[in-house]
Amino acid sequence: MRGISAVALAIAGCSSAAAPPAPRIVESTRIIESTPKVRSCKPEAPVALVAELVPIDARRARLTVQATPTAAVDALELALVLPAEVTLLDGAPALRTGAIGAGESRTLAATLRLDGRAADVAAVARVPVDGVVMARAATVHLGAEPPWLRSHTYALPDGELAREVRP
């Protein structure tokens, strides 16, 4: 009897498709920055964003976003853009302040839970400049990384290099 049970378990073990383990929300603390680029020539919102994501457990993480205007602004709005795969467990999804000076910071903190396999969460800072509401975003990827796209590199006859993908 014991032998039959062992065989049955072995068959069950071989035939059941083991579900892939749910990816962790983030492997380790991750910091994403978005600031006015020194070399950039496009008009940019005069505000710097730093987002820090600290894992709590496999599915939860603490997100802290700091917005720091690089010039005095009349108002600042800081908001999270949360997709359906992410639940806000605590904290506010947005904050608004009045005028603040250059170098002063405002911080938004929230605890997030990843319900799907992967998602992108964005923090967006909006500031008015000369009548135009400009924005800056910092995007944090949660969960499984996108599938790796295999590529192949070589030189063309004129020496130009190419990185070729084959979906």
Binding site: P43, A45, A79, A122, V124, R126, V132, M134, A135, A137
Partner: peptide, 8 residues
């Protein structure tokens, strides 16, 4: 200038 959240 499009970005996450719609840009500006």
């Amino acid at each position: 200038d499009y970005a996450a959240g719609g840009g500006w």
